[in-house]
Computed example of a mutant assay.
Amino acid sequence: MTGLVTRFAPSPTGYLHRGHAYSALTAQTAARRDPGGRLLLRIEDIDATRCRPEFEAAIYEDLAWLGLDWETPARRQSEHLADYAGALDQLGARGLIYRCFRTRKEIAEEIGRAPHGAMEVFRGAPLPPREEARRLAAGEPFAWRLSLEAAEAALGGFATLRFLEEGEGPNGEHGEIRVRPEIGGDVVLARKDVGVAYHLAVVFDDALQGVTHVIRGQDLFEATHVQRLLQALLGLPAPVYRHHRLLTAPDGRRYAKRDRAETLRELRASGVTPAALRREMGFD
């Protein structure tokens, strides 16, 4: 009988901190409690502009120090870009994506100009063929965006689309959740500088690796809506979701790389033991 399969999937864009440790230990605990449970490690390194080999090496070192064990080899997304391109091609062949030539700044300005509450996320449309051809010939950069309008037509609407939440969303969401792709707008699925984007790579890998339960922080709860939509469009199975609380520092802010949260390497250097850290987070 197949047991629970979950994964810890960090991006090597910095060193791991307490928040990462809490998420990894939560996933490991779930796998160990389930007969036949499995924990996978996936290195989400598709953003070549920010990922670094030294950060990836530190991930393995930190997780081993923490007492995690995982199936080897870990899947490295950078080694499977052709797989994600194939999934993107599937969506393109069905007219579900379009080229968007607007910059992030232009999109932010457009949202800012809209009447309050009228436009919180970007919704676009393909350019007329001649205009698109002109821009391509000029070498202008573009991103592939998912067309919510085309996706809704392809599925006959979003009304029946659901995902199962066994944990809790940031506002207490639990149980069967109606999917609301509109909260993310026409999300980017690929762009020139980083190739395929997070959402598409994640749903492809979860299906390929047989992940039955996605265990992750509540900061990714809203991402589940577009990821569930992509699963439906690509004919991929939908895992169960267990979003967990975010670990916060004494000042109340959640641990984050951008805020220079104290890293596991720094904790180890200061003499903190894995057992002490696990007790601090409630795992022993």
Rank of each mutant, 00 (worst) to 15 (best):
D251N: 14
M119W: 02
G117A: 07
L161W: 04
D219P: 05
A190Q: 10
G169P: 09
D219K: 03
I97D: 02
A207Q: 02
A223I: 07
E56C: 09
T273A: 01
A64C: 03
R145E: 04
M281C: 02
T248Y: 00
A57L: 05
R94D: 09
E56G: 08
A153S: 04
S147M: 01
V240L: 13
T29P: 00
P250V: 05
K105W: 01
V188C: 01
L264G: 03
R76Y: 13
Y84Q: 12
P128W: 06
I183F: 03
E54I: 08
A153V: 05
A238L: 15
I107V: 13
R145K: 06
W65D: 09
A232I: 13
H17Y: 07
L208Y: 08
E182I: 01
P237I: 14
D251L: 02
A21Q: 10
L230M: 09
A93F: 01
T6Q: 13
H243M: 11
T160S: 14
V196F: 00
A249I: 04
A276M: 05
C51M: 07
A9M: 02
R260T: 04
A138R: 10
D83T: 15
E61L: 11
L230W: 07
G252R: 08
A256R: 12
H80E: 11
D62Q: 10
A87W: 11
A9F: 09
D34S: 15
C100V: 12
P115I: 06
P35S: 10
A57P: 04
F142N: 05
A87V: 03
E140L: 12
L136S: 02
T26G: 04
A261Q: 00
E176Q: 14
L66P: 10
P10E: 06
L220Y: 09
K105I: 08
L234W: 10
A27G: 13
A151K: 00
Y255M: 00
E152S: 08
A150N: 01
P239W: 10
P274Y: 01
H213N: 08
F221R: 12
L229H: 06
R134V: 11
I97V: 15
M119P: 05
V272D: 00
E165N: 05
A207W: 03
A238Y: 04
I183M: 07
R102I: 05
L264D: 02
R50D: 07
P239Q: 11
G184L: 12
P53V: 10
A30G: 05
A232W: 08
I177D: 10
D259P: 00
P129H: 05
D259G: 02
H199W: 08
L91T: 05
F221Q: 11
